Amino acid sequence: MKLINESVWKFDSVKYGAYMALFLSCIHLVLQEVYNANVLPEPYQTIVSLGLMFLAVLIGRKKAQPNLQQPLGFATITAGHSNTDPGAVNGKVKEADLVVNFRNAVTHYLREAGLQVKTDGTGTKNDPLSAAVKLIQGSSVAVEFHMNAAASKQANGVETIALPKDKKLAQDLSKAVADALGSRLRGDNGWIDQSKSARGRLAYVNAGGLIVELGFISNEDELARFNARYWLAAKAAAKILIDYENCN
């Protein structure tokens, strides 16, 4: 038997049944102890009580509960590059491998919160950009993870490339990741307008997605902090997306 991972008390069918049981218990005590009245023979008392409780459960089950019936959010979470394109490399460390781990961690926390998630692969699978972009359609939010690289080993920081309409979400994601990793924010408090990005127009962003640069793989200190704390950063990023879904 598998139990649901939530409190059953929020369901009206449970609450109504419990209220009716309490009500019938009070009535029984009043009749028996105060008035010493035997309105119905004992077998019929039990039958009536069970019938009323069953009716209460049915009413609670049929009653609309908008807060429970709202459609869950549909997020697209993808990893940059692919199994055939490693992205930036630092020795034997590949960008594609790091962001797949981050994608999987964020997906874990989103699904744990009840969101529906589309991804560009499970486990170590990482589909190419052409497949990732197709997943965005129909999603309420879409985020892809990358890592930066630079000739300077000192380059550092977190940024999110997005269209102006997603500026606030981009800043919130960048701050959550940067705080968890102990990094700084780049751009406009973590937001990079696509028009000002060195990469120019990006297919993922054009399709409505956001690209989060989790740090610089070329910076040894930042890379070490990412490897040590990426689960914390993923949880922080997931919380931003969950809050975003709850407000939209």
Rank of each mutant, 00 (worst) to 15 (best):
K10V: 15
G209C: 05
S49T: 15
A79Q: 05
E220H: 11
L31E: 11
V141Y: 09
K175H: 09
T122I: 11
N90G: 01
Y16G: 08
E220A: 15
V212C: 11
A18I: 15
A21K: 02
N67F: 12
S49I: 10
Q65D: 14
E95W: 06
L98H: 03
K92E: 11
G121H: 07
I192E: 01
V177S: 11
L98K: 08
Q32Y: 12
W191P: 01
E42S: 11
G182P: 07
K168S: 13
K92Q: 10
P86D: 04
G182F: 07
V48H: 09
V93E: 06
K235H: 10
D172K: 09
I59A: 06
V117Y: 09
P128K: 09
Y16H: 08
A236I: 07
K63F: 07
L210N: 04
A88L: 08
I211T: 00
F74D: 06
R61G: 08
A238Q: 04
A64D: 11
A142L: 00
A75D: 06
A233N: 05
T76K: 00
T160R: 01
G208Y: 08
Y35L: 12
A79F: 03
V100G: 01
L52C: 14
V117C: 02
E220I: 05
R229Q: 14
L135H: 02
V34S: 08
G80W: 01
F74R: 13
W9K: 11
V39M: 12
T119S: 13
H28N: 11
V117R: 01
L115I: 01
G187M: 00
K125H: 10
G114Q: 09
K94S: 04
S183D: 13
A56E: 03
K63C: 03
L55S: 13
K165W: 06
W191S: 00
V177E: 10
R103L: 03
L72I: 14
A18V: 14
K62Q: 13
Q45R: 15
A233G: 15
I27T: 11
A142I: 05
N219W: 05
S139W: 09
L223N: 05
A132I: 00
A207H: 08
L31Q: 10
L185T: 07
F74H: 15
K94T: 08
R229H: 15
Q171N: 00
T107A: 04
S82K: 03
P164M: 06
S49W: 12
E112N: 11
Y109C: 01
M1W: 14
S82A: 15
G209N: 05
A88P: 07
D179Q: 12
K15V: 10
K167I: 04
L31H: 07
F23N: 02
L163Q: 15
D188N: 14
K92Y: 09
T76N: 03
H146Q: 06
Y16N: 12
G17Y: 11
K165L: 06
E159T: 04
E245N: 15
I136C: 02
L72D: 09
M20H: 08
G87P: 07
Q154R: 10
A237V: 00
I59W: 06
K235V: 05
V39S: 04
H108Q: 12
S13P: 01
L3T: 12
P66V: 02
V158L: 02
H108M: 05
K168G: 00
K235T: 03
L3M: 13
L22P: 01
R186F: 03
Q154E: 15
W9P: 01
S140R: 13
S152C: 02
P86F: 08
V205C: 02
G208A: 06
T107N: 04
